[in-house]
Amino acid sequence: MSNSGAALYLADLDTTCRFLRLPQFFSTCMSFSLVADMGIHRGYVGNWFMSIWCFCCAVTLIVLTVELRRFPSEFPFFWYLSNTYACYTALFCLSASIIYSLTYVQFLPYGPHRDRAIAVTAFSCIASVFYAMEVVKMWERCKIYKTSCYVLTVPGLLKVLETFMAGIIFAFISNTSLYLHQPALEWCVAVYSICFIPAALAILLNLEQWEYRLPGPFPLFQLVLSLLSILLYISALVLWLLYQFNKEFGGHPQRSSDEDCKDELAYDMCAWDQRLAVAILTAANLLVYVTELGYWACQVSVETKALPRVS
């Protein structure tokens, strides 16, 4: 970011604080408070997402305080961290709204607890909208003030999606009983970790354009990395589906065939539900990597054509 661009950017932060930070804080605070007040009726899913809304609420308050006290000028990377946080939080609140309603709200009996859970979902959706609005406004500012932010570019957003979905997968496979009994499933967990690390590093490398310190061209490096990630994710998807849902490999093709799901409350995600969620997220993240491969292939092709020809 240039000095003039940074000055204009920081001068415009008050508007963001006034029109976006406060609704973000209020919405996440309401979601957290309503779930916390449900007591024992919130279930495992409610506890999980309550921690997410609590984290978003706390961090948003910290960001708001920093911006109102004009501290961003003392922290050169604050603008980058703020944009990255907004991208991730918009995805977290949106996914929390969807999963919470599908696995919890619809199974609650009609009454005050169901009404409260519906209100929680509504506030979470509102929060995701305000965080998404912040991402859009940041992107517009980057164009107006001629500044740059990696997470607001196409490859940056793809990296955010890759790391976000990998993070959700890690949350589901925190139940080690899903994979410790089978080496093939342990390989799947290793794939998720192996692919997550370089994706997260790519975001960090672009913090101060550190990608230019790599020994080779950054697009070519990302192209090879995307191809390797695709191959690894294909192997993980095939093995996960075979060993989790194919009866011949010890899997459970139907939810009713899984003993762990028979004694569970309807609004709690049993082992079979978690297996299915990991399979869906693996397939979705594979599509993101394929999209990224296409993007970097185009970039490498353009750079190759721009090279001077030797007669």
Rank of each mutant, 00 (worst) to 15 (best):
R309H: 14
L205P: 02
N3R: 12
A279L: 03
W240M: 07
Y233F: 08
Y131I: 03
F221E: 01
S177F: 09
P23R: 10
F78E: 11
F172G: 07
L102K: 08
S33E: 07
T282C: 11
T65F: 02
S301D: 14
R42Y: 01
L13E: 12
T28D: 15
V135L: 02
H41M: 10
A127D: 13
M133D: 08
A271G: 05
I126A: 10
I280V: 15
A190P: 00
S82I: 02
A236F: 12
C125R: 06
L281R: 03
S229L: 04
T60H: 04
W48I: 07
F170C: 06
S2K: 10
T291G: 01
I40C: 06
L61R: 01
S177C: 09
Q274V: 07
I40P: 15
F196T: 10
T28V: 07
V302L: 12
Y295N: 06
I234C: 13
A190E: 03
L227T: 14
K305T: 10
E292S: 15
Y289P: 00
S95P: 02
L293N: 06
L20F: 06
T60W: 01
S27M: 12
Q182H: 09
I234Q: 02
V135N: 00
Q274T: 11
E248Q: 13
F172H: 15
L68H: 13
G251Q: 05
T304E: 11
E248W: 03
I118Q: 10
R42T: 08
S177T: 12
P112D: 12
L205H: 01
Q244H: 12
E186T: 09
V129G: 05
A58P: 01
D268H: 12
L241I: 05
A190S: 14
K143M: 11
Y233Q: 09
T84A: 07
D268Q: 14
A199E: 13
Y44A: 10
V189K: 13
L34P: 03
G251C: 04
G5K: 13
S124P: 00
H252K: 07
M269Y: 02
S97H: 13
N83E: 12
T121H: 04
D260V: 03
Y212G: 12
A6V: 13
I126S: 09
N285T: 13
Y104T: 15
L205E: 09
W272I: 05
E208D: 11
V151D: 04
L214Y: 05
S193C: 11
H252I: 00
S2F: 00
L220T: 09
A184I: 03
D14G: 01
D37N: 14
F77T: 14
F221G: 00
P72N: 07
D37Y: 08
L94D: 06
